[in-house]
């Protein structure tokens, strides 16, 4: 069944098939093209392996991210920060690219299917952009004022934050899939944000009215700030805000979150580029994987059981949080505690 769905996507979306083939062939051809003297510190096979591995991992992350509506940053950034020694600013810059590109590419299929309403995206994107730029600028301020200990502090704070995110996903469970529609008030009523989408599992349209928009705008500034600061994107928090605060059905919230993430991070990425924290060669395979995986994820959203994705995600968040907290404490106190991870 799953294989049939995958195959039909490749036939229906020829540009996706082409992109994956061209990427694999392009990276595969690299060893034949090499014309510069090799460096003994890192072999060519290791370079190509690292690039291809990043591409494939990014592709898988993008599928999970789009289906769960969380953006790839919340998976990428903690894993790389927790398990490698790469500079935190470099990781966070790459994390923002990972977070936004699956959202950019999945927008068209999701909007076409009616799962995302562009009015909701535009209204929520503005506070997210403002928060994102402020967060990115704060990240550089902290790095400049605290030096090396800023790295450890970021790891520790991110670990604690991930514990909170995991808790939100555990507590949310399967509830609030279809919040009961109530009349809009305040700003939501002024903007006439009454929406609906076609739910294939119910074989009918689900109507909803946006609630508590004023509160949500404040929360989106905060989400944008945290996303810009840690390079997470912020999709992990957008779904709860859209679903629990604004009463948007879970599936529409997950879909809208990715599209919102792309606009919200478009400005936050620039401070990282200006300060030279974005390494193009490192970012490239991750961006390509997000584009291919984003298209796949958007087409799979209607077929995948979100419950399975959610459980996988919780396990991964908890594991990474423990690792990050451990590394953060070790970096700040210079006390190394054994950990089998």
């Amino acid at each position: 069944m799953a294989a049939a769905v995958y195959m039909s996507i490749f036939v229906r979306v020829p540009e996706l098939t082409l992109l994956i083939i061209v990427s694999l062939v392009g990276f595969g051809l690299v060893p034949l093209l090499v014309s510069y003297p090799p460096d003994l510190s890192l072999s060519l096979a290791a370079l190509v392996g690292l690039t291809l591995g990043s591409f494939l991992l990014s592709l898988v992350i993008a599928i999970v991210a789009v289906v769960a509506g969380i953006g790839g940053g919340v998976i990428f950034t903690p894993i790389v920060l927790g398990f490698t020694s790469i500079d935190t600013l470099v990781v966070r810059a790459t994390g923002l690219v990972v977070a936004m590109f699956s959202g950019l590419i999945s927008a068209a299929p999701l909007l076409k299917r009616g799962l995302v309403d562009i009015r909701l995206v535009y209204v929520c994107a503005l506070p997210t952009i403002i928060g994102g730029v402020l967060g990115a600028m704060a990240a550089f301020h902290l790095a400049a004022s605290m030096g090396a200990s800023a790295d450890a502090l970021v790891r520790l704070l991110l670990g604690l934050l991930l514990l909170g995110v995991a808790y939100v996903f555990i507590r949310g469970g399967g509830r609030n899939d279809y919040p009961k529609p109530q009349p809009s008030t305040g700003l939501a009523a002024i903007l006439s944000l009454d929406m609906s989408y076609y739910e294939s599992s119910l074989n009918g349209h689900v109507s909803y009215k946006v609630q508590r928009l004023g509160w949500a705008i404040g929360l989106f500034v905060l989400v944008g700030f945290i996303g810009g600061f840690f390079g997470l994107g912020g999709g992990w928090a957008m779904v709860p805000v859209l679903n629990l605060v604004m009463a948007v059905p879970l599936k529409a919230a997950a879909a809208s979150s990715g599209v919102l993430l792309a606009i919200g991070n478009a400005a936050a990425i620039w401070p990282y580029i200006v300060y030279g924290a974005l390494v193009p060669l490192l970012v490239a395979p991750w961006m390509l994987g997000q584009v291919a995986g984003g298209i796949l994820g958007a087409h799979l959203l209607a077929h995948v059981k979100v419950r399975v994705v959610r459980r996988l995600l919780i396990a991964m968040l908890l594991l990474t949080a423990i690792k990050l907290i451990h590394r953060g404490i070790a970096g700040l106190t210079a006390v190394e505690v054994g950990l089998i991870l």
Partner: peptide, 29 residues
């Protein structure tokens, strides 16, 4: 994405970068 792919192949295959490719990866890692 196609432009990014082209840039990656040019960098990894032809080493057409200001800072050498291996040096970039080694320092980052």
């Amino acid at each position: 994405a196609i432009i990014v792919l082209l840039g990656s192949v040019l960098a990894l295959g032809l080493g057409w970068t200001v800072t050498p490719v291996e040096q970039q990866f080694t320092r980052v890692l």
